[in-house]
Each structure stands twice: as C-alpha cells, then as structure tokens.
Simulated assay, not measured.
Amino acid sequence: MTILRVVGCLYMLSGGWCAFAPALAAGFLGFSFTGNSGYAEFFAVYGGLQVGLGSALVMSSLIERYIEGGLYFAAILSTSLLIFRVLGIVYYGSNAELLSMAILEALIAAVLWIGWIKIRRQAELDFCNNC
C-alpha cells in the first residue's frame, strides 16, 4: 500500500539525516551534544529507530496480509508521537520547527488512520461477501 511506503520512506529519510548529519539534525530539533556519547545515542535512537521503523513499514507494504497490521501499528505510533509533540509544545514552548513537525505528524497520523479504516472496511466487506 502506498501510504505505508510513503510514510516508511519519510521515516527512513529522517533517520538517515539524523544518522549521517547528527549535528545538523540535532540543531534543527534544539539539541546540542556535550560529547561523543551524545552523538552515539542520537545516532542510535534517532537514526536507527527511525530507519528501522521506516524499513518495517515499507516491508509490511510488500506483503498483503501485513498491510492492515502495518497501517494500524504506524497509526498508533504516529498518533502517540503527535500527542507527545503537542504536550511538549504546551509544557516547554514552541518554535516554527516544532510546529511544522507537529503539523507533519498530524497529517501522517490522519492519513494512516484513514488508510487503516479503508482497508478494515474492505476486509469486512470481503468477509461478508464470502458468507
């Protein structure tokens, strides 16, 4: 399904940016590093986690029986990221970068939920038609 591939590629691109340009990515997010352990942690968590998540989404899109689960998982994860982003903005303040990330996350979550609802309804119709 296209939604999983697009969102997966976005996560992989973001993860690649965090892994291969950590100072630039961290600066965009408001982070600064105090030593190599900070770089290593940012590389692993922001780079590795996002590349892994993106890869899982893209790979789930390639096997039909995994698509519904992949969409559901990604929708829950993206909604959680959005909720925590909004809470972070409320608690700690905002800037243009954080607001743009929140808008992007809201869009991603909405598209994933819409995709999941659509595929869920289709599965229910297919089940009823086979009865």
Rank of each mutant, 00 (worst) to 15 (best):
G35Y: 07
G38R: 04
Y39S: 08
Y39G: 03
A40M: 14
F42S: 02
F43T: 11
A44M: 12
V45F: 15
V45C: 10
Y46D: 13
G47M: 06
G47V: 05
G48M: 10
G48Y: 10
V51P: 08
L53W: 06
G54S: 14
V58C: 12
V58E: 02
V58T: 06
V58G: 03
M59H: 06
S60C: 14
S61W: 03
L62G: 14
L62E: 14
I63V: 15
E64Y: 11
E64D: 15
R65Y: 04
R65V: 07
I67P: 01
E68N: 06
G70A: 07
G70E: 04
L71I: 07
L71C: 04
L71F: 09
L71T: 03
F73C: 13
A74N: 06
I76Q: 09
S78E: 11
T79R: 07
T79I: 09
S80Q: 09
S80F: 15
L81I: 14
L81Y: 09
L81E: 04
L82M: 13
L82Y: 10
I83N: 03
I83R: 02
F84T: 11
R85P: 01
V86Y: 03
V86I: 15
V86K: 01
Y92R: 06
G93W: 07
G93I: 10
S94L: 08
N95S: 12
N95D: 15
N95L: 06
N95M: 02
E97Y: 06
E97K: 00
L98C: 00
